[in-house]
């Protein structure tokens, strides 16, 4: 059973979690294009600007959060995720170097996965309207 304060923490931080996950996906998507040789993978791709903006918002939200004892582990994972994803974002300054960006990005995403496992209410993938999501049994 979750206490009220932890439940409130979950509600408050779902958006931050989603945003960090989105930033990770944005960066990963650009890296796929770059590694696959797509001409669309360039440092001025609009997704990169969107990622920077979203990351700033998520980082600000994270700084404002006070975790409960029950949520402390989750919060630590989220903070480490933000730190690593921030490093990955900084590496996008010049040419998109896949190796330099991918290492911190992967570390950040791993921390997001750990955060998702640490408390309920944080989905790694949004299934709500996925192909297989029509048969919700709950």
């Amino acid at each position: 059973m979750l206490d009220d304060a932890t439940a409130a923490y979950i509600v408050e931080n779902q958006r931050c979690f989603e945003d960090l996950k989105q930033v990770a996906a944005q960066l990963a998507g650009l890296l796929v294009l770059k590694a696959a040789g797509s001409k669309e993978a360039a440092p001025d791709h609009p997704t990169l600007g969107a990622a920077r903006l979203l990351f700033r918002e998520a980082s600000d939200a994270l700084r404002r959060t006070c975790p409960t004892d029950r949520a402390r582990k989750h919060h630590a994972h989220l903070a480490r995720a933000a730190e690593s994803i921030g490093v990955a974002l900084k590496e996008t300054g010049g040419d998109l170097n896949v190796d330099r960006i991918l290492i911190p990005l992967r570390a950040g995403y791993t921390e997001l996965e750990r955060a998702a496992d640490a408390l309920p209410g944080f989905e790694k993938v949004s299934y709500a309207r996925a192909c297989c999501g029509g048969g919700r049994v709950q």
Binding site: V32, V98, L105, R106, V125, Y127, G133
Partner: peptide, 13 residues
Amino acid sequence: MLGIDPADIMRAV
């Protein structure tokens, strides 16, 4: 972006 898993994208990298 429904149905997309960021981890899949990273594996695609």
